[in-house]
């Protein structure tokens, strides 16, 4: 990928967005038949599918917990989801992201309802254009809601980046690759809890506060869209006459 001019002379970004503008967000819920819950979330060109199975009994009984369900999570990229083919073997990046995505969900899932069971979350990155882990968190939380697993709140996630010295919301792949910082944030807005926070890059203390505010602003927009998508599944059921 050629390095584009990340901030144009008119102050807009290389794809014409304002610094605080999200890419188009599309959310579909219940897209799979056999999973207990599922969701497909797109942030611009990033397309992520999440499926939930369970709560269920599993064969590895030694990892079960006596007083709550465990959450198992796999973040996985399809081999053709990236510019260069990704080897199907799990990468160190995928192993880390499986952990941080799981840990973004742990604070909201009311796991005590299902002791000695596992709730399995499978995240499949179908097309990667920046922000795959944040789309993954949003999709996973919606798939959990679709599976009817009690949660204190939905978790939605969005990344803020620093490109050519400017803080921008929802960075795409070019901005991630050529920018100075990438900061994914996941939040449960109703209960005011930030459940994922990473910073890859260097920021001053002031830049950080500003970046966090920008992320929370973007997250609240995605939160509204998520709630709407969950409701629409029922609001749009037409009575058959």
């Amino acid at each position: 990928m050629e390095k584009p001019r990340l901030i144009r002379e008119d102050g807009l970004r290389h794809d014409g967005r304002r610094p605080d503008e999200l890419r188009p967000v599309r959310i579909s819920i219940g897209v799979l038949n056999k999973a207990s819950g599922s969701a497909l979330v797109e942030y611009g060109g990033t397309k992520v599918l999440a499926a939930v199975h369970g709560p269920r009994e599993i064969s590895q009984r030694h990892i079960l917990l006596p007083d709550r369900a465990i959450i198992r999570c796999r973040y996985h990229m399809l081999s053709f989801s990236t510019h260069e083919r990704k080897s199907p073997a799990p990468s160190r990046r995928e192993i880390e992201l499986s952990k941080v995505v799981r840990e973004s969900l742990e604070p909201v899932v009311i796991s005590e309802v299902f002791p000695r069971t596992a709730i399995d979350v499978f995240v499949e990155v179908i097309n990667a254009d920046g922000g795959t882990r944040t789309a993954a968190v949003t999709a996973a939380s919606l798939a959990l809601a679709d599976a009817g697993i009690p949660m204190r709140d939905l978790v939605v996630a969005i990344a803020v980046g620093k490109v050519s010295g400017t803080l921008v919301l929802d960075i795409d792949e070019a901005e991630d690759m050529y920018g100075e910082a990438d900061m994914p944030v996941a939040v449960a807005p109703s209960i005011g809890l930030i459940t994922l926070l990473q910073l890859n890059g260097v920021l001053s203390r002031e830049e950080f506060s500003e970046a966090l505010k920008l992320a929370l602003k973007g997250a609240s927009q995605i939160y509204e869209k998520s709630r709407e998508a969950l409701r629409d599944r029922y609001m749009k059921v037409k009575v058959e006459e």
Binding site: I110, A145, G148, P150, D153, S190, R227
Partner: peptide
Amino acid sequence: PGEVVVEGDYKILTPSYVIRIDRKYIATIV
């Protein structure tokens, strides 16, 4: 999930599906 259903003092009939934070009653499920 996460939706504030009502505020005040209520008795929760479905404990897994409603939580109370301060005076807010929050749904945990669709």
